[in-house]
């Protein structure tokens, strides 16, 4: 049986692509945190640093990310459909002992995150949601050159309650998805045993919580007026 049609093979593909996205989320948060000013020039300098990389590297990185997202979504949907049929009739009394809200709703938190991803890209990458504040068409001076005003775009976006609300809501979905997903990765790769598993579950949930808090701080501080453009 092919790896991509086997039960465990597909599970491993879900785990690896999922974990790659967790690593991306960690690096993305570290980069975004430059908005708080620890980097000389703030998030505008960080964005300029990324965009000054050679185009093949940027496009290659984007294509790999896109492929990872597609594999994760494809097998996620396929496995969920198969698994829904695994128990043709539900029990009259529902009694879950170990499953959690997060583990039972991976498909829904995942779908919300996929929708959010489209919105997020339209907002900050393609900049079509609020074209008047688009960073690419509003250049500001940085050191001795003119760069896109990412800071202005982000601040203008998050001043809006609904935009901030969408971002915060998506991060709740991210927390739920990862609180099950991170520990699941170690179990699926076979890197856990009875002694390490409870620790992995706790650490995985903490990492998910850390990502949630880190990401949600940006819209929250901007909306509250603490972080100004």
């Amino acid at each position: 049986m092919q790896f991509t049609s086997s039960s465990i093979g597909r599970k491993i593909l879900m785990a690896i692509t999922g974990q790659a996205m967790v690593l991306f989320a960690v690096v993305h948060l570290l980069g975004n945190s430059s908005i708080f000013g620890w980097l000389n020039g703030g998030i505008n300098a960080y964005a300029e640093h990324l965009h000054s990389m050679p185009l093949p590297i940027i496009m290659g990185f984007r294509l790999v990310l896109l492929a990872i997202v597609c594999v994760h979504i494809w097998f996620g949907i396929q496995l969920t459909i198969e698994n829904r049929g695994g128990r043709p009739q539900e029990y009259a009394v529902k009694s879950t002992q170990k499953a959690t809200f997060a583990s039972e709703n991976m498909i829904w938190t995942g779908s919300l995150l996929a929708l959010f991803l489209v919105y997020h890209l339209a907002h900050f990458t393609f900049q079509v949601i609020n074209p008047e504040t688009a960073a690419l068409s509003n250049l500001v001076p940085l050191h001795d050159m003119m760069v896109p005003n990412v800071m202005g775009m982000v601040v203008a976006g998050f001043k809006n309650f609904f935009v901030s609300f969408i971002y915060a809501g998506a991060m709740v979905a991210l927390f739920l998805h990862l609180s099950h997903g991170i520990q699941s990765f170690f179990q699926t790769m076979g890197w856990s045993c009875d002694k390490s598993q409870p620790v992995i579950i706790k650490v995985g949930t903490l990492v998910a919580l850390g990502l949630f808090l880190g990401y949600v701080t940006i819209p929250l501080t901007i909306f509250a007026g603490i972080l100004k453009g």
Binding site: S6, S7, I8, G9, R10, K11, I12, L79, E82, N83, G85, G86, R87, T96, Q97, K98, A99, T100, S103, E104, M106, H180, Q183, S184, F186, Q187, T188, M189, G190, W191, S192, C193, D194, Q197
Partner: peptide
């Protein structure tokens, strides 16, 4: 069906078999 790591199996098992054996099988499969 396929495993999604709910660990309900371990709670249901009358012999207390741990899900570490699923992890070991995943390892063996790899």
């Amino acid at each position: 069906g396929n495993c999604t790591n709910h660990y309900e199996c371990m709670a249901a098992c009358p012999k207390g078999i741990n899900v570490k054996f699923i992890a070991r099988m995943n390892r063996e499969f790899l």
